[in-house]
Write a protein that binds this DNA or RNA. Structure first.
Lengths: 194, 194
DNA sequence: CCTTGTATAGAACATTTTGTTGCGTAGCGA
DNA sequence: TCGCTACGCAACAAAATGTTCTATACAAGG
């Protein structure tokens, strides 16, 4: 199916995208050029042009690489509060301690004028939303929550606030804050059926 | 205090920044250059270089211009729900129908590597947060809310979700959604003192 | 109205960045 | 071993980015 790839091709591609991500974090999208990546990696400029004739493609591939991993199926067995605390903890850790934190704003900004970047961020967010949604649905199935609880709104609140604080308002995401956040979400979910 | 400025200077500055904002919306930060602004406005490139020797300065000034206005003192006399609905309506309208919608992500992305942009977005957000906070505080003062309601968290939720939906998730902000959002915030505020 | 100072347009120029092409070399797979 | 392909490199073309100078036109104050 997928043709057997030349290891040289893989290697240069990986090295280039790693470098692109480094630059992206430290200096922003504007600094990611064939020239800058060439300087860092030692890969010749002409080779980079052969891989990505247009710089947008390289940037988008870097975006994809930063947005790709997760692969953590959310636990949906504990009580709602525990599941939520755990999953949002992972989400917050990704924002705090991985390249995704500094890179996400770049992807979001690029999404305004680039359909491919829009797709990257959409798919990433849809996955996160689906994960949190799964937790609420499971809680419903266990009878922890009333059937008419507006899950979708709660999910968006749960995710929106950390993203807002970190990326937009520039506020920290520490454990204390996370606890109180989870608290509010749970309270809202459980009090919704009065 | 401020020296009387030459009207020519004001005029070119305004025209340049208007053009910069237009480009910013349509093509993103990368497209805002001395050259592109010169092409649109007819202002000569050398003049633009005199105003802004570094392109970042021009971009930041454009950011400031987009982030500047508001000057609407929030109404704090109605019931909480009405005040909130009104103020968030304005906030949502700004995201939907003004240049701020497309420009905000650019400012946020720039804030990662540019302290001045960080300041722009911080001041902008602090003002919004303070406005919404004022509404909650007034509701407390009227006795509508219990004194121990965690205003700050509610405020962040109220603002974070529309920003998240519009800028990050790419979801629409329509009236139906806004109503249900205000609903949840009010419910959370009023149910918090059980 | 006149004078002085300042902002601008425009051109000329240097420098840097960006994009393109051809070729020799070396790693890869068969 | 042999053909294929990726790579580095150098040379080059084209475009963008800065810089400087001069002539002109507008502004402000007397």
């Amino acid at each position: 199916m997928s043709k057997p790839k030349d290891p040289r091709l893989i290697a240069t591609r990986d090295a280039a995208l790693d470098a692109a991500l480094t630059i992206l974090q430290k200096e922003g999208v504007l600094a990611v050029t064939h020239g800058s990546v060439s300087n860092i990696t030692g890969i010749s400029r002409s080779t980079l042009y052969r891989h990505w004739p247009q710089i947008d493609r390289m940037r988008n591939d870097a975006f994809k690489r930063a947005a790709s991993p997760s692969s953590i199926p959310p636990a949906t067995d504990g009580p709602l509060r525990a599941d939520l605390s755990w999953l949002l903890g992972i989400l917050v850790a990704a924002l705090n301690d991985t390249p995704w934190g500094p890179i996400a704003p770049q992807v979001i900004a690029a999404a305004a004028t680039d359909q491919e970047a829009r797709t990257v961020i959409n798919e990433f967010m849809n996955e996160r939303i689906a994960n949190v949604e799964g937790i609420f649905d499971a809680a419903k199935a266990r009878g922890e929550l009333a059937p008419d609880v507006p899950v979708r709104n709660l999910v968006e609140m749960a995710i929106a606030v950390p993203y807002f604080r970190k990326l937009i308002a520039g506020l920290p995401l520490d454990q204390d804050w996370l606890d109180s956040h989870v608290n509010m979400i749970c309270q809202l979910a459980e009090g919704a059926d009065e």
